[in-house]
Design a protein around this nucleic acid. Structure first.
Lengths: 200, 200
DNA sequence: TCGATGTGGTATCGACTCGATACTAAATGC
DNA sequence: GCATTTAGTATCGAGTCGATACCACATCGA
């Protein structure tokens, strides 16, 4: 008998059931993303890159940050970005502060593709139909992601306003304690590469 | 302003947050699977195929069933199986009932690879450490998967004992109402391609 | 019994991912 | 200044994946 069974209960242990669920839902998401991207000649990873660039802040729209976010190597991500640039979905801009760094911006065409393709129809429909706006699912997944990231010594890429460097200076006026730059209300909702949970 | 925002709340709508969470956890799982498979020269999809074959019943260990389970094309899956057979991780056996059909069996080497590689250390540790054995997460994910599959007109691949064809004939003695074959207690826990939810 | 149709599986091709390696350029630290 | 680190690019090979075409066998209807 395999070590995966508990002979007393004749039951797969909970970890295996949970892992199988995550794997299957992940595959389904990937399949849907593949189908959605196919209409524009894009692979799943291309759509994911565009989605990240749409929701990250001005410190985090670089190839290096995207590399960490996607968990790939910088060489792979560099290729992906080359393809997206050729297709006119994003634009590169050299940084004025650090001449090694490149900043990435979605073009109008990139935003249009994203609005059309993500989330895929199947997920949009099912997630939108969850009771209470899927609050229970969101809480469970958020907790899981936090645990995974902390166990993995990985950056959290959380929203700016939930970071321990975030400072409130007045109504709609904020500041980042790390860069000392002022932040708008819109800024405070974007994902940041330097994000650290408030409790830390 | 993009259609993804609700201007009144300056907040991403819940569907986008949920989608992003699923995508990120799925990517993390894939990255871990890639690393785990690398030690054996395997890709994520190879480990997934082995895991399926470990947990499916004798009606469902065929290339066609695996194709449906993984959501890929039969050509793609055929290639994957060829590679796994060459590596000695599974064995093909022609069906005696339908001479078109091939049945797939894990070899001892295949089971050994699987026991070593899945679930990846990161997930095993984090999922095992969830409060209450992760019951809340399991419930939320199970509900989500059911909704996705029903919206997608996809087979559920549920455990035999939860199927509407499942019949209880005595203590530890069961029968499948579809094939009319007797089933053991172990059989009743395996995944079946013909599974239909009991309520239907 | 015979053909039409459907299903299970394989083979081949091209576009693309992804890691590995090697490389350049710029920032940083001593 | 010189070594080290970091950001990014270029190139290569193994492999995924969908598309298409194909074969063997089952099923169904006349």
């Amino acid at each position: 008998m395999s070590s995966r069974y508990r002979p007393d209960t004749f039951c797969f242990v909970a970890v295996d059931r949970l892992y199988a669920l995550l794997e299957r839902i992940g595959n389904l998401l990937r399949t849907e993303e593949r189908a959605a991207g196919l209409r524009h000649g894009l692979q799943p990873v291309h759509l994911q890159a565009l989605r990240y660039l749409q929701s990250c802040n001005r410190y985090s729209n670089t190839p290096a940050a995207l590399t960490e976010y996607l968990g790939l190597t910088k060489g792979t991500v560099s290729q992906t970005l080359l393809l997206l640039e050729e297709k006119g979905l994003l634009r590169k801009e050299a940084s004025t502060e650090d001449r090694r760094v490149v900043h990435l911006f979605l073009t109008d065409a990139g935003r249009a593709v994203l609005d059309e393709a993500l989330p895929p129809a199947l997920f949009g429909q099912v997630l939108g139909g969850l009771p209470e706006g899927g609050r229970a699912l969101e809480e469970a997944l958020t907790g899981l992601l936090r645990s995974l990231q902390s166990a993995n010594a990985q950056r959290s890429f959380g929203a700016c306003a939930t970071c321990r460097h975030f400072r409130r200076e007045g109504p709609g006026r904020f500041r980042c304690g790390l860069t000392e730059e002022p932040l708008s209300r819109e800024d405070s909702l974007l994902l940041c590469r330097e994000h650290e949970a408030a409790g830390a």
